[in-house]
Design a protein around this nucleic acid. Structure first.
Length: 138
DNA sequence: CTTCTAACA
DNA sequence: TGTTAGAA
C-alpha cells in the first residue's frame, strides 16, 4: 500500500510516517515511481510505534526496541532482557520527572496561597499585571 | 489525484 | 508537526 492508505488506516499523518522512516523506525520499499510501498505488517508496526511513543519513549529508544518484537504480536510481547532494563530506566526517568513537576507545583501552591490580593493589587510602578502562565506552551 | 523532497513556520 | 512549492 502507498503512504496515504497506511496513514488513513493507522490514523497518523503521512508526515509522521515519513518522519518515522527518517528515524529508522520504518523501512518501506520503493516503487519505480519513487513512491513508498508498505507491506501489511507496516500497519502493526505503526501501531506499536504509537504505543511506545505514548509511553513517553523517544524515537531512538523505539528504534532499538522494535527489532526485538515479533512481527505477529498484537502489541508488545515479553521481549529481550536487556530491553526490559532499558524500559526500567525509562520508567525511572518518568518518575524523576514527576517528582520535579510535583516540586514545581508545590512552589506555585505556596505562591498562590501567599498572594491573597485583599488590598487590591497595588504596584508602585503602576504597570499592568500580566497574567502568569500566559504563553506557556503546555 | 497522489506522492516526493526540501524548507519554513 | 503542519504546510507548501514545484515536479513527476
Amino acid at each position: 500500500m502507498r503512504i496515504g492508505e497506511l496513514a488513513r488506516r493507522a490514523g497518523v499523518s503521512t508526515r509522521a510516517l515519513r518522519y518515522y522512516e527518517e528515524q529508522g523506525l520504518l523501512r518501506p520499499e520503493r516503487r519505480p515511481s519513487g513512491y513508498r510501498d508498505y507491506g501489511e505488517q507496516a500497519l502493526a508496526t505503526v501501531r506499536r510505534i504509537q504505543l511506545l511513543l505514548s509511553a513517553g519513549l523517544g524515537t531512538a529508544v523505539i528504534a532499538e526496541i522494535l527489532p526485538c518484537v515479533p512481527d505477529d504480536t498484537t502489541v508488545l510481547a515479553p521481549t529481550c532482557p536487556e530491553l526490559l532494563d532499558g524500559l526500567a530506566e525509562e520508567r525511572a526517568r518518568i518518575t524523576a520527572a514527576m517528582q520535579r513537576l510535583a516540586a514545581a507545583r508545590d512552589i506555585l501552591d505556596s505562591l498562590i496561597a501567599t498572594g491573597a490580593p485583599d488590598p487590591p493589587a497595588v504596584r508602585r510602578d503602576g504597570a499592568a499585571c500580566r497574567r502568569a502562565g500566559a504563553g506557556q506552551e503546555m
